[in-house]
């Protein structure tokens, strides 16, 4: 099965805007393989969603005929025109805002196994908004300061500038987070994770994905690292290893003040370093 992805020409776009007030809303984005950009703007009282046709997808051989049949069933007479596809995808993208639970929901229409087009989604909300993005293939780029960020995807390329906490479930791909002020939790499989400035705890599990964490230089950190790959602590001051291999935080009177960083990997390399050097 092969697919051909053709970038769409510029054309009509869809734009929705909601007044959300001073308190940052929660943003939930559910996609198939659509690229998502989230811009977090200081002092904004609006939530805006911008949707444009990103690409058309066609198949070759038997799969191509199957995709065209599905497309004809969905679009009817407009199946062969890009404008027909654009109209279908933009109008069937679900964009809702509930002032009751302060949640903005964006769902792209092509979340199933068969896709014949993707839309480019741009969400603009106030800084500090919590963000949840899930999908098959997540290409996410956030700009600005977010609240908690949660991403769940089969594949993905993720870049988050700043978040209060970060929760990631990713099978393949990579994630780069510039700053996390709080905790990081991740289940990575083969995906890699790089956090350039980690201010809180970390609990990371991977199968073969590499993990790189740069720890903010604030106080003590208890480490619990295990991997079949390599552990690189060359960027850290000397580690005082626990005497019996047990958890360090129990040997230091509970260690309430120390951060905890736990990374367990099957074969991925683990690299920890100290920030601000």
């Amino acid at each position: 099965m092969t697919t051909e992805v053709v970038r769409a020409a510029e054309g009509v776009v869809r734009h929705e805007s909601f007044t959300v007030g001073a308190e940052p809303p929660r943003v939930f984005v559910h996609i198939g393989a659509d690229p998502v950009v989230v811009e977090l703007v200081e002092g904004s009282h609006q939530a805006e969603v911008h949707v444009a046709l990103d690409s058309t997808i066609d198949g070759t051989g038997h799969y191509g005929r199957f995709v065209r049949a599905v497309r004809e069933a969905a679009l009817g007479a407009d199946a062969d025109s890009e404008e027909g596809l654009r109209c279908h995808l933009l109008s069937s993208t679900e964009i809702t805002y509930s002032s009751f639970d302060r949640q903005l929901v964006v769902r792209s229409p092509q979340r199933g196994a068969v896709r014949f087009g993707t839309v480019a989604i741009t969400v603009r909300v106030s800084a500090g908004s919590d963000l949840v993005v899930r999908g098959d293939v997540v290409t996410l780029d956030t700009v600005g300061i977010a609240g908690s960020v949660r991403v769940k995807a089969c594949r993905g390329e993720i870049h988050v500038v700043s978040a209060s906490s970060f929760d990631l479930r990713l099978r393949r791909g990579s994630a780069l987070v510039d700053t996390v002020h709080g905790a990081v939790a991740a289940d990575l499989r083969a995906a890699s994770l790089n956090v350039a400035d980690l201010g809180g705890d970390a609990d990371v599990v991977s199968s073969s994905g590499a993990v790189a964490l740069t720890l903010r230089p604030e106080g003590a950190v208890d480490l619990s690292l295990g991997t079949g790959g390599e552990v690189d602590l060359s960027g850290l001051p000397p580690v005082v290893e626990s005497a019996d291999g047990g958890p360090v935080w129990e040997q230091h009177g509970g260690g309430a003040a120390a951060r905890r960083v736990s990374v367990t990997s099957g074969s991925g390399d683990v690299r920890l370093s100290r920030g601000g050097l």
Binding site: R216, P217, L225, T227, P237
Partner: peptide, 14 residues
């Protein structure tokens, strides 16, 4: 972590 894993358990002062 598997039994043969490269493990580090300790505390570091940053």
């Amino acid at each position: 972590a598997s039994q043969s894993a490269d493990t580090v358990r300790g505390r570091v002062e940053l």
